[in-house]
């Protein structure tokens, strides 16, 4: 469902979209079933002159089964939801695949600075490329990011990646992503960070290998 609204661009975006879709199918089924039952009962037992009500307490076995059976089925559905949710979570947040490159993301009121490894592919060397509000990555590469904050809480969110991670001052939080398609997309701050929160956006430029190399070369010596 989400992919029709916004393109999936990271390797795990499809998993999250599928999980979202799957959960909505399960809960949607129950939702429409229960609403259907609800409106049926409203219609069936509307007030009619001279029709008495049935006195039941809720202890009758033949009636209780209408509650108990769906109840057990819902527990089974819950187990399924938990299983797939945890699996997706594990792949996105807990299990970091080997990185091809590492970038550093520093958030502050109200801007993003990005430190890219330069030509040597290593962070923390002289040829690091620093940019503001503009992140350049290469498609098909696995990136680790180190997320920091200089002042308050921020949250690094790339909707096309389906990725979001809060930045906490005093901590360095590591995560990963692997972009799939080239293009330029939004980065948003997703945690209230003060007056400029509404303008704290940045752009992520996903480039092919050649374009990315050209960009790195163009930054050389700056």
């Amino acid at each position: 469902m989400i992919e029709r609204l916004i393109q999936p661009v990271s390797t795990f975006a499809g998993d999250i979209d599928q999980l979202f879709f799957g959960i909505h199918m399960v809960v949607g089924f129950w939702f429409f079933l229960v609403q259907g039952m609800f409106f049926y009962l409203l219609f069936r037992y509307r007030y009619r002159e001279g029709v008495p009500t049935t006195y039941v307490t809720g202890k009758e076995k033949h009636l209780k089964k209408w509650i108990n059976i769906p109840h057990i089925l819902i527990i089974l559905c819950d187990v399924g939801v938990i299983f797939f949710a945890v699996q997706t979570w594990y792949n996105v947040k807990q299990n970091l695949p080997e990185a091809d490159a590492t970038i550093r993301i520093v958030s502050q009121q109200w801007a993003w600075s990005f430190v890219h490894p330069g030509e040597d592919g290593e962070l923390g060397t002289d040829d690091d490329i620093k940019t503001v509000d503009e992140l350049h990555v290469q498609e098909g590469m696995t990136y680790h990011f180190q997320l920091e904050s200089r002042d308050v809480l921020h949250s690094f969110s790339v909707p096309v990646f389906r990725l979001k991670q809060d930045a906490v001052p005093g901590r360095v939080i590591t995560g990963w992503f692997e972009p799939m398609h080239t293009g330029v997309y939004d980065i948003q701050c997703a945690e209230m960070c003060g007056i400029g929160h509404g303008i704290m956006g940045a752009r992520i430029h996903i480039e092919s290998a050649e374009d990315h190399a050209a960009w790195i070369a163009s930054k050389k010596g700056t």
Partner: peptide
């Protein structure tokens, strides 16, 4: 309330909450 209830599930499920959180 049932709409509110069922839409809580994708938020409580950690995997999809990565995307939906604070949206």
């Amino acid at each position: 309330f049932m709409i509110g209830g069922v839409t809580g599930i994708p938020l409580g499920a950690s995997g999809s909450d990565i995307y939906l959180h604070d949206s």
